[in-house]
Simulated scan of single mutants.
Amino acid sequence: MTTSLEYRLFKGNNSSEPLFHYEQIDLQQVLARRSCDFYVKEGIVYKQTSSAIEGDWHVIYVTKEEEGEMEKEEFNINDTLQLEMRELNGRANHPILKKIEFDHHIDILSHIGSDYHYIDGMEWEKDSAEIDEDRRVYVLYLIKTGYKMEGNRK
């Protein structure tokens, strides 16, 4: 099922201005995007403040968080959806813990919607999620809890 999505820059005092439009977008992708705390486009990091449905349009309201250089798109030979699981550690440039590829946005939503993840037997707690359109990747920022999983689960 396809729908439409608009990102709007929230300016305070109940005012906003349109930023980006997606006329034909899969509903699963809208839901995955709406679950992201941050949205990166053209080198600018936006923070989601709220979302709405206005008739046939889905709307995500954002504020400008920071501006930087536009990062280069990741090369994706399989043309799949990419999820980077990163340690929340700005001093170390948020090191990648794990990369996963998916075919459907519902799989991305399943991961970014979960509060706890287990990587190499260690438990990690979700801090935030973002969609980075510049690099065409979803990113999940995690904090190590110190809990180690017992047993054979991965």
Rank of each mutant, 00 (worst) to 15 (best):
T2W: 05
T3E: 02
T3L: 01
T3D: 00
L5N: 00
S16T: 03
E17S: 09
L19M: 06
E23R: 09
L27P: 01
L27C: 04
R33W: 13
R33E: 12
C36K: 07
D37N: 15
F38K: 12
Y39G: 00
Y39L: 14
V40W: 09
K41Q: 14
E42V: 06
E42M: 10
G43S: 11
K47N: 06
Q48N: 05
T49R: 11
S51Y: 13
A52V: 03
E54V: 09
E54S: 12
W57D: 04
W57T: 02
H58C: 00
V62D: 00
K64C: 07
K64S: 04
E66L: 07
E67A: 04
E67S: 05
E69M: 05
M70F: 03
E71D: 08
E71V: 06
E73N: 04
I77N: 09
D79N: 14
D79E: 15
L83H: 07
M85Y: 13
R86S: 05
G90C: 07
G90H: 10
R91Q: 14
N93W: 10
H94W: 12
P95R: 10
K98I: 10
E101M: 13
H104F: 15
H105C: 07
I106E: 15
I108E: 08
S110P: 09
H111E: 15
H111Y: 15
I112T: 07
D115M: 13
H117P: 06
Y118P: 00
Y118R: 06
I119W: 03
G121D: 02
W124V: 02
E125W: 08
S128T: 08
S128P: 02
A129G: 06
A129M: 06
E130M: 10
I131K: 04
E133T: 06
R135S: 07
R136C: 06
R136M: 08
R136K: 13
Y141C: 02
L142Y: 03
G146V: 04
Y147A: 05
G151V: 00
R153W: 01
